[in-house]
Design a protein around this nucleic acid. Structure first.
Lengths: 195, 195
DNA sequence: CGTTGCACTGAACGCTTGTTCAGTTAAAAG
DNA sequence: CTTTTAACTGAACAAGCGTTCAGTGCAACG
């Protein structure tokens, strides 16, 4: 048997990355074998190498695309207004974006250590750009008297951790929908910065 | 060569678990081999089986001891007083405990999926007990009018995520010491619950 | 001093890993 | 209808995996 009907590169390629994403999130990068990924796509392990030079690149590509999408979506969100309005927009954007990609959030926060040093630095820098956007809002709000913060750097880390944590427990079929969750978190974020 | 001078069970045993902890935190459970752990202890791989029945138990024991210590320390902390005082005590306890065990925090939040279902349930239940302690403080404070919260369950998750996140970026040789960090976090926690 | 027993070695076990590649097949191109 | 080519198979590779175990030598015990 060779090529199956209707099975082309443009179809198999995304399926490979999709299967890798799901399996990495569920079991962890190191615990997933190329053969498991291949089985999920109904293909032999060797065929995967038509779509990735190696396993490491599979992980890196996932994270790179994720960070690029995050920064693009963040830019497209066009966050503006008073620092208070910006903080609310950022909060809602972050929650919505991450709740739609819980698998990637998992991988982003757990598998960075499995990247080669070069790949790690690329991803870490992209993350820093995003976190800086939040810190700038806090600094502006602090200077303009909207917020009362003792340390904007720590506040940034605290808020990011709190907001990203939502992806760890949220279930689509749970008692709360996305907008309600965002409302609840925004209420806590607003208070925590003293606004 | 056989037994080396001064190398006994009471010494090697803890060294094995210590090396496993460090390596699991750094590279992840699945990415660490028994031979790597053995090398760290200056021993052949086979010798590890004097101290653990298998690799899985090594991970489980680490997590089980961690959770037991957490609950014991929490009980010993003797948290009491008004809900506001309790929340402050909880916050400071949580940060101090977790900053002294950043490696275990890492493992606790990343390697649960590598536990067998039975082992997973044991650890997950212990964690739930701990999280319930925080939620009870929030509920009492809410009822007594100390706090203004829309949803105590979500507030619990949000606060735990925020407080535990500190272990991910804190460096002992950084610009802030433990007490200062606790002060800063307590300020944000207090505000976020509306007190 | 002779014996016991523990801590350990080093080799081996069957299995899985990531990766390569010659060969096969079906679809597209001429 | 023939040729080309992209997509995939299936076998193979060396390396590494977790785990077992017979054997070795030291320390403590009687």
């Amino acid at each position: 048997m060779a090529r199956k009907q209707g099975s082309h590169s443009e179809i198999t390629g995304p399926k490979v990355h999709g299967a890798a994403l799901r399996l990495f999130a569920q079991h962890g990068f190191a615990a997933v074998s190329m053969r498991q990924i291949a089985a999920e796509v109904d293909v032999q392990a060797g065929a995967l190498y038509n779509y990735t030079p190696d396993k490491q690149s599979l992980l890196f590509d996932l994270l790179k695309v994720h960070m690029d999408e995050l920064l693009t979506a963040h830019a497209d969100a066009g966050i503006k207004g008073t620092p208070l309005e910006q903080l609310e927009a950022f909060t809602r954007f972050h929650i919505a974006f991450h709740l739609e990609r819980t698998d990637l959030v998992f991988i982003s926060y757990m598998e960075l250590r499995n990247l080669t040093p070069d790949n790690f630095n690329i991803i870490a820098n992209l993350r820093r750009v995003y976190e800086n956007a939040l810190e700038q809002i806090l600094i502006q709000g602090q200077d303009a008297g909207y917020f009362v913060l003792q340390d904007t750097k720590i506040a940034t880390m605290a808020l990011i951790a709190m907001l990203t944590g939502v992806a760890h427990w949220y279930r689509e079929d749970g008692r709360l929908d996305l907008d309600t969750v965002a409302d609840l978190y925004w209420d806590m974020v607003r208070k925590s910065v003293g606004a």
